[in-house]
């Protein structure tokens, strides 16, 4: 047992050694994001900066927090910028977003993301449950949105597939790795599960509420509710399975269903 073997002084050692560096990365990305959103640059350039700094910043901060050196984590920002630029040129460029999960799979297979909850052995039963839970939440969203706001369901591959690639490569991964893998686990090691989950879910919901692309009040309320619920669901899945993978599956399915919604 730990308390029988280790000296009392060891209890004060920090767990996350990359805490300071990850905050520096996050601060730099936040500054770039604010700069891009105040209209100083053209809209397309602002979108590239937005995706790179928001998702890339969250992702890089999470990786540094999880023990990956800064020099290895920061290139993900450039990778996302490149993908967003390619999308601006042609929708097929969204395929480049998938480079991020591929790179993360390599890191995870080597056991370098274990602190973030991504390490073998993979529990596919948890992934199935996460998928079903994400679909259930998304169906609720679709039901509410269609009944309340009159949204319909569309199947337009040209629009849905690039959005799905963006969700998989940037949106879901950055949110899951930062808000669950890094922030929630960091908070959970200091406070109880309930407190940590509430704080991490609040932070995740806030990130979507403050997102400049979530423009209307209905969307903001919806984002707050559903992102909060998704955060609670994924935090619970992480605790239950010990892996981030079921949460990633749930979020992916949720956003995939969400992309099927069309106003009017």
């Amino acid at each position: 047992m730990w308390a029988l073997r280790h000296p009392a002084a060891a209890a004060r050692l920090p767990f996350h050694h990359g805490w300071l560096e990850s905050r520096a990365v996050a601060a730099a990305c936040l500054a770039a994001l604010v700069t891009s959103s105040v209209g100083l640059v053209p809209a397309e350039v602002a979108a590239v900066i937005g995706v790179a700094t928001l998702h890339g910043g969250l992702l890089a901060a999470a990786l540094v927090w999880g023990g990956i050196p800064v020099r290895e984590a920061v290139p993900v920002i450039a990778l996302l910028a490149l993908a967003r630029t390619a999308v601006a040129l042609h929708p097929v460029g969204a395929v480049l977003y998938l480079a991020v999960p591929l790179w993360l799979v390599v890191l995870a297979a080597n056991g370098r993301l274990s602190r973030l909850g991504l390490a073998p052995p993979w529990r596919w039963g948890g992934v199935v449950i996460g998928t079903l839970a994400g679909i259930a939440l998304a169906l609720h969203l679709i039901a509410c949105a269609s009944r309340t706001l009159g949204y319909g369901v569309r199947v337009d591959a040209a629009t849905v597939l690039p959005a799905l690639a963006y969700d998989v490569g940037a949106n879901v991964l950055s949110a899951e790795l930062f808000f669950r893998g890094a922030l929630f686990q960091h908070l959970w090691r200091r406070w109880t599960f309930g407190v940590a989950l509430a704080l991490a879910a609040g932070a995740a919901a806030l990130r979507y509420v403050l997102d400049p692309f979530v423009a209307t009040i209905e969307l903001r309320v919806g984002a707050a509710v559903y992102m909060g619920l998704l955060a609670i669901l994924n935090g619970t899945l992480l605790r239950w399975s010990g892996s981030l993978l079921p949460g990633i599956a749930a979020a992916t399915m949720f956003f995939a269903c969400y992309r099927l919604l069309a106003s009017g």
């Binding site: 730990w2 308390a3 280790h6 009392a8 209890a11 050692l13 767990f15 274990s114 602190r115 909850g117 390490a119 686990q185 959970w188 090691r189 200091r190 406070w191 605790r239 010990g242």
Partner: peptide, 12 residues
């Protein structure tokens, strides 16, 4: 004494 985490496991 209460210690929130030993830091040895993947979960607290």
């Amino acid at each position: 004494v209460f210690l929130a985490d030993t830091g040895e496991q993947s979960q607290p």
